[in-house]
């Protein structure tokens, strides 16, 4: 093989290698980009019951008197958080377009102050976009002192354009401990318990 032929070949190989490496870096970045894209897609279509974690404004549209929709509230306590969360009522019957306010009581059963967060989920998933929350305890992490007991409101509007075939909307709140939030005070308490556990 003459000299310039092998040079042409080397150049070709180098060009191909750099192009493939670029493609690789692109795909790796794409994998990580999929995470926010997935979140956005879920919020857009409301699939998987992911509800907006930002307050939405109430749209004043007249109430659709013709049909009643049952909105159920279910609270679940995740593992490892000594709190108790109770909804003021088990279910509410609303007309699409109506707003409603429900109080949830949180009580910290343990002897130490701790952080918790309620993760929302809506079923059926097609109803998710039609539940407009103006204020909800699930928007940010809650802090409770030892034995403290507070009531937090959930204010939401059931959109008028809720698909007609939906008769029951279930809002489920799962309470999870928030490990990341350690104030210094909290840290010693945590480590002391850590040794005991």
């Amino acid at each position: 093989m003459s000299r310039n032929e092998s040079e042409v070949r080397e150049a070709g190989v180098r060009r191909t290698v750099w192009r493939t490496v670029a493609a690789l870096v692109g795909m790796f970045a794409f994998a990580f980009a999929l995470v926010p894209m997935y979140d956005a897609f879920c919020r857009l279509t409301g699939i998987n019951g992911k509800v907006d974690t930002t307050a939405q404004a109430i749209v004043n549209e007249e109430v659709d008197e013709s049909r009643m929709v049952t909105v159920q509230f279910i609270t679940r306590n995740g593992t490892g958080l000594p709190w108790r969360m109770e909804a003021e009522t088990r279910q509410v019957r609303l007309h699409p377009g109506q707003t409603s306010e429900i109080y949830f009581t949180f009580s910290n059963q343990s002897g130490a102050e701790s952080w918790g967060r309620a993760v929302p989920s809506v079923s059926p998933s097609k109803a998710t976009r039609h539940v407009r929350k103006t204020s909800c305890f699930c928007f940010e992490e809650q802090q409770l002192q030892a034995g403290e007991r507070i009531e937090l409101p959930l204010v939401f509007q059931l959109a008028r354009d809720l698909p007609p075939e939906v008769h029951t909307v279930t809002l489920v709140y799962t309470l999870y401990p928030v490990e990341g939030r350690h104030q210094p005070l909290q840290a010693e308490v945590q480590t002391k318990q850590g040794e005991e556990a």
Binding site: R76, N77, G78, T79, G80, L81, P82, R84, Q109, S110, P177, E179, E196, A197
Partner: peptide, 21 residues
């Protein structure tokens, strides 16, 4: 007290669930 707390609240990050409800 420690025993009761373990059973009621479980241990997060381990297989021990909370039997609270």
């Amino acid at each position: 007290d420690w025993h009761v707390n373990k059973v009621i609240n479980g241990v997060s990050g381990s297989a021990m669930p909370s039997f609270r409800n």
